[in-house]
Computed example of a mutant assay.
Amino acid sequence: MATTTLGGGVVKRTTRLADGRELIYFDDPGTTLGPERSVDARDLSPRPETATMRLDVLTGDWISIAANRQNRAFLPPAELDPLSPQTPTNPSEIPSRYDVAVFENKSPSFGPALAEATADAPAATDPPLGLADLAEYGLGRTRTSVGRTEVVCFSPDHTGSFGTQTVTRARTVIEAWADRTAALSALPGIEQVFPFENRGQEIGVTLPHPHGQIYAYPYVTPRTHRLLSALERTGDDLFDRILTFESASERVVLRGEHWTAFVPFAARWPLEVHLVPHRHVADFAETDAAERDELAPLYLRLLRGVDALYETPTPYIAAWHQAPVHVGRAGARLRLELTSPRRAADKLKYLAGSEAAMGAWIGDVPPEAAAARLRDAIQGVQL
Rank of each mutant, 00 (worst) to 15 (best):
G200V: 10
Q201P: 03
E202M: 11
G204P: 07
V205L: 13
L207H: 02
P208A: 12
P208G: 06
H209D: 00
H209V: 02
H209W: 04
H209T: 04
P210K: 02
P210R: 03
Q213R: 10
Q213E: 14
I214S: 04
Y215E: 06
A216N: 12
A216Y: 03
A216I: 05
Y217I: 03
P218C: 13
P218E: 12
P218V: 07
P222F: 10
R223K: 13
R223M: 15
T224H: 02
T224E: 07
R226C: 14
L227Y: 04
L227C: 09
L228V: 11
S229C: 05
A230W: 12
A230L: 13
R233A: 15
R233G: 07
T234D: 11
T234V: 05
T234A: 09
G235E: 09
G235D: 07
G235T: 08
G235R: 05
D236V: 10
D237H: 05
D237E: 14
D237M: 06
L238P: 00
L238H: 09
D240I: 00
R241W: 02
R241C: 07
R241F: 04
R241P: 07
R241Q: 15
I242P: 01
I242A: 07
L243M: 13
T244Y: 00
T244D: 14
F245Q: 13
F245P: 03
S247F: 10
A248Y: 03
S249D: 05
S249N: 03
R251W: 11
V252C: 06
V252K: 03
V253Q: 03
R255A: 15
R255S: 15
R255D: 15
R255M: 12
E257Y: 08
H258D: 14
H258P: 02
W259D: 04
W259E: 04
W259G: 09
T260I: 13
T260R: 01
T260W: 00
A261Y: 00
F262H: 04
V263M: 00
V263H: 01
V263A: 01
P264Q: 02
P264G: 02
F265H: 11
A266P: 00
A266K: 02
A266D: 06
R268H: 15
P270D: 12
P270Y: 06
L271I: 14
E272L: 08
V273L: 10
V273N: 02
V273E: 01
L275T: 04
V276P: 01
P277A: 10
R279A: 15
H280T: 12
H280W: 08
A282E: 02
A282K: 05
D283N: 14
A285V: 10
A285C: 06
A285H: 12
A285T: 03
E286G: 06
T287H: 07
A289C: 08
A289F: 01
E291W: 00
E291K: 00
E291Q: 11
L295A: 05
A296G: 10
A296S: 09
A296Q: 01
A296K: 01
P297A: 12
P297I: 07
L298M: 14
L298Q: 13
Y299T: 07
Y299K: 13
